[in-house]
Each structure stands twice: as structure tokens, then as C-alpha cells.
């Protein structure tokens, strides 16, 4: 028991460090990649030998030292709690996220996630769903700033639209793997083709919901800069404001890993049949980072949807398709169609 607690604590500290560093590196990578898309250089001056790799560190120090303004009319408690939720719940979701394939030690497996529960996906979805409360409370607490309020309102509208569809899209792989355990789902794909080939529709639907969850460019409605100044975080400053993008980066990572685990076979891949552990690890992270890059790519490419268009799309197109898809999957499983 003590052993379990100890490994749990060590895992937690390591994961915390990894995610922290990941967020900083991503910030740098995002700015570099956007710079590449937009024919400019990107951060360069801080640590010029490392192509400005330390720029996010400088940014973080700057935001630590900046004046922390709390609007006079703000609801102080909620105003404080909102960024904490925004930073904490994506982190909580990342607790159940696998960081690599399980390591076989003797007869038992050592799981590279902080907690390994057999309903991992439910937990992750719940934690990500709660993240919306940060935006909601940030919008309401901002002392009557109407831009914040509209931002929060949009977030709610956006959340109720995509959450249902996302869950329905994930239901297909879950049905096929007959498990809610992330490791089991990957294991189910190691026997035959990845689920993306059986469930292309669910894949596309989830891809769309992925962007909506992370609130990245075609769907960055709550903070649409040109319409709502900065949406829910208009009134925030200093470290509190930095918590929101930090949470967003972790969400991007969690969503990418879910994508890879559910549809692209997790750590399975060519030349990997369970043994060369490191190859599985590499496969996994290559796929995850590709999707993280996809987020940045879309950021640099697409214009923004209007929020009624997102709701229309989710409720009128994606939802019926997803329901039909789930029905079809169930039917196919019952009659044992040969391809499954």
C-alpha cells in the first residue's frame, strides 16, 4: 500500500513537471509554427542560441510580476476561483491520460498514467466538461463587463452543442472495444486495424469536436478577439490571465491523446507488437504531437465560425449523424459483420 502511495506521488510530481514543461515548450512551438505560416520569425531575442526557446519562461516571469487588477465591481471570490478551475481541471483530466504504453515488469503492468481506472474515459470527459465552469464563472464574475458575459454565454452554448456529439462519437470505439478503459481500447486495436478505418464518420465528428473543446480557431468563439475584445478574460491580468491559455494547452494535449487512443491505435503501429516498448512510446508521441500541431495549423489557416453556425452544425448535422452511426455500430456488432 505504501508502495502504491509512493509511486503515485512520484508519478504525480513527474507528470506535473512534464506537463508544465510541455506547456512552455508548446507555447514556444506554437509561436514558432505560426511565425512560419505567417512568413515571420517568431520569438528570437530571448535565448537567441536556442531560437527563442526560453521566451515562454520570460513571458511567465513577466506575467508573475505584472499588476494583478481586480475590477472594483467584480465578485472577488468567483473572480479568483475561475482561473484556478481553468488551470486545474484540464490537469485533472490529464491525470488519467496515458503517457505511453504500459511497461511489463514481471507478470504485472506498470501503467504510465497517474491513476489507472477502468472507466478512464468517463473521468476525462467529466473533468474536461467541468473546465467550462472556469469560463462561465470568469464571465459572470467580471464585474458587469458585457463582453465577458457574452463570452461566457457563448461558451455555454458551445459546450451544450459539442459535448453530446463528442460523447456519441466516442461511444463507437467504446462499443467496439467493449471497454471504458483506455488501455483496453488500445489493446483492442492491436489485434486488427485501427478504429479510424471502421469508424471514419465518428473520426471526423470527433475531430470537429476536438477543436470545439479546446476552443481553437474555427471555434474560438468565447474569446473571439475581434468581436468580444477578449471575451471571458477581458478583465483578467497577470498570472490569472495566463492560467486560461495554460489550461487550454493541457486540453489540447488531452484531446490529442484521446484522438490517438480511440481512433489511431494509441501506441500500436508498424513494427510494434508489444515488445520494443520504446518504439511504442515513440509511435504514441509522434501521433499525439501531430494532432497538437494540427491545432496550431488550423489556428493559422481558418477563419472563425459564428456561434449560431456552430450550434446549427452540432445539433442539426452532427448529432443525427452520430446517433445513426451509433445505431449502425450496435447493429454491426450484434450481427457480427465480418469486418469487426
Amino acid at each position: 500500500m505504501a508502495m502504491h502511495v509512493l509511486t503515485g506521488v512520484i508519478k504525480f510530481i513527474v507528470a506535473f513537471a512534464v506537463l508544465g514543461i510541455y506547456a512552455l515548450v508548446m507555447l514556444w512551438f506554437e509561436r514558432k509554427a505560426l511565425g512560419f505560416f505567417q512568413i515571420r520569425i517568431g520569438p528570437k531575442l530571448v535565448s537567441s542560441g536556442l531560437e527563442g526557446l526560453l521566451q515562454p519562461v520570460a513571458d511567465m516571469l513577466k506575467s508573475l510580476w505584472k499588476e494583478d487588477i481586480v475590477p472594483h465591481r467584480a465578485d472577488k471570490l468567483v473572480f479568483w476561483v475561475a482561473p484556478v478551475i481553468g488551470g486545474m481541471f484540464p490537469f485533472a483530466a490529464a491525470l488519467a491520460m496515458p503517457f505511453g504504453p504500459p511497461i511489463k515488469i514481471g507478470g504485472s503492468y506498470f501503467y504510465l498514467s497517474i491513476v489507472h481506472v477502468n472507466v478512464g474515459i468517463l473521468y476525462i470527459l467529466a473533468a474536461l466538461g467541468l473546465t467550462s465552469y472556469s469560463i462561465l464563472s470568469a464571465g459572470i464574475a467580471a464585474g458587469g463587463n458585457k463582453y465577458s458575459l457574452i463570452g461566457a454565454q457563448r461558451e455555454v452554448a458551445q459546450m451544450v452543442s459539442y459535448e453530446v456529439v463528442m460523447a456519441l462519437a466516442l461511444l463507437n470505439p467504446i462499443l467496439m472495444a467493449r471497454s471504458l478503459d483506455l488501455y483496453e481500447i488500445v489493446a483492442a486495436q492491436s489485434h486488427h486495424l485501427w478504429f479510424v478505418f471502421y469508424q471514419p464518420v465518428a473520426f471526423v465528428v470527433f475531430l470537429i469536436c476536438m477543436f470545439a473543446t479546446a476552443a481553437i480557431v474555427p471555434f474560438d468563439l468565447p474569446e473571439a478577439e475581434q468581436e468580444l475584445v477578449a471575451g471571458y478574460n477581458t478583465e483578467y491580468s497577470a498570472m490569472k490571465m495566463a492560467m486560461f491559455p495554460f489550461g487550454q494547452f493541457i486540453t489540447v494535449l488531452v484531446m490529442s491523446s484521446l484522438m490517438v487512443i480511440f481512433f489511431l491505435g494509441g501506441w500500436t503501429g508498424p513494427y510494434w507488437d508489444g515488445h520494443p516498448w520504446i518504439l511504442g512510446f515513440i509511435w504514441y508521441w509522434v501521433k499525439v504531437l501531430f494532432f497538437v500541431f494540427l491545432f496550431i495549423w488550423s489556428w493559422g489557416t481558418f477563419p472563425r465560425y459564428r456561434y449560431d453556425q456552430l450550434m446549427n452544425m452540432c445539433w442539426k448535422i452532427l448529432l443525427p449523424i452520430s446517433v445513426l452511426n451509433v445505431l449502425w455500430t450496435g447493429f454491426a456488432l450484434i450481427v457480427h459483420l465480418p469486418m469487426i
Binding site: Q38, P218, A224, Q226, G300, F302, R304
Partner: peptide, 16 residues
Amino acid sequence: MALDIGALTPFFYTFR
């Protein structure tokens, strides 16, 4: 206009 509708990149191309 592209920037207003949310597309970031065309702004830099046109300004070039």
C-alpha cells in the same frame, strides 16, 4: 477583414 473574421494568416501575406 480576414483578421476580423478570425483568419490570422492572410493579414501577414497582404502586408508583405
